[in-house]
Computed example of a mutant assay.
Amino acid sequence: MLIHPWDASLDEAEWQTWIADGHDFGVLGVNGPPGRPPAAVPTHFASEPGHLLVHLARPNPVWEAIERDPNVLFTAFGDYAFIPGPWRAAPDTPPTDGVPTSYYTAVQFTCRATIVDEPEAKAELLRRQMAHFQPDGDHGTIAVGRPPYGRMLPGIRGLRLAVTDVRAKFKYDDHKPVEHRTAVADHLTERAQGLDVSAAAQQRRRRDRVGPWKP
């Protein structure tokens, strides 16, 4: 992932806050067998200090690849929007001369995967995930041999992804003048399609922190 200086996370707290704000879905990328392409699996995840927690169905084809090479990449992304060319045209130039781009946030975790197969360890991984996704506790008991989850545990395998590196990108034209960023954020709010509003919120937040870009 290419990260220009103006797209980089301003500090670790920025991407950590973004993840904690509910960005808990992404794509797990694993190296494929020799001569085969990599595999990618969309999935929710929970996080704890230094680790991501994932579980997948036992029939998922990625297990062989992970057993062969536990070095994986997990990418969470969101707050994305397409920015049409006329919104980015320089002053005193025809709107059609503007070059379109994409806005988005992406956080990539380089990880070393450990497969979790022991029943109680899987149950504990699920409990930690449910503490994140259903913190009110409005779910059945997650315990080996007890319904409703006990009978389902053999059908899944868990993954503890030890994070070895994090690269975060906030691509919102921070190298452009403040007035330009403000105008584009206003366009996004007015269009209000897909994730336009959340993309505009990220752009305004970055604008207020960065101000005029200084190389």
Rank of each mutant, 00 (worst) to 15 (best):
T141R: 12
S198I: 13
S198F: 02
F74S: 08
T189W: 07
I19V: 14
W213G: 07
C111Q: 03
L188F: 10
P86V: 07
G140R: 09
A8F: 09
G194K: 08
E179A: 15
G98E: 05
R167V: 14
P95W: 13
H55L: 02
P33T: 04
A106N: 02
F45H: 14
L195Q: 15
R167H: 14
D208Q: 12
W6Q: 11
G29S: 15
D79M: 03
E12Y: 01
R112I: 04
G150Q: 10
W213E: 08
R209A: 15
T96E: 15
V54H: 01
E48L: 00
V210I: 15
I83W: 07
D138E: 11
L73K: 04
D11G: 12
D208F: 06
D186W: 03
V144K: 01
I66M: 10
V163K: 04
F45Y: 15
G85C: 06
G32H: 12
L53H: 02
E48R: 06
Y104K: 02
R127I: 07
D117W: 00
G137C: 09
P119I: 04
M1Q: 05
A168T: 11
L126D: 02
D7V: 04
V107F: 03
P84V: 11
W63Q: 07
P84G: 07
A106M: 01
G78I: 11
G35C: 09
E48M: 03
Q16Y: 00
D186G: 10
A46G: 14
E14V: 03
D92P: 01
A183S: 12
T164Y: 00
T141W: 02
P84Q: 08
T101W: 08
V197S: 13
T101I: 08
A183E: 14
R146M: 03
L188R: 09
P119S: 06
P37Y: 01
V27P: 00
R157T: 06
E48Y: 02
A192H: 13
S198N: 07
W87Y: 11
Q203I: 05
A39Y: 08
E179V: 09
L56N: 03
G50W: 01
R151T: 04
A57M: 09
D174R: 14
A143S: 10
K169Y: 01
A131V: 03
T141Q: 11
L2W: 12
A192S: 15
H187M: 10
K214R: 14
L52F: 10
R181Y: 05
Y104M: 06
I156M: 03
T93R: 15
L188W: 11
D7M: 12
D79P: 00
W15P: 04
G78T: 10
T17A: 15
D11H: 13
A89P: 03
E12K: 08
T101S: 13
I19M: 10
R68M: 13
P84F: 06
G194A: 13
R112G: 00
G145E: 06
Q16C: 01
R36N: 04
A89Y: 06
G145C: 08
I83Q: 11
A162G: 00
F74H: 08
H132L: 13
G150C: 09
A65H: 13
R205T: 12
K171T: 11
R206G: 08
L52W: 10
L28W: 03
L188E: 11
I156P: 05
E67M: 09
C111S: 05
D186E: 15
G50D: 01
A121W: 04
P148Q: 10
A168L: 11
D173I: 00
F133K: 04
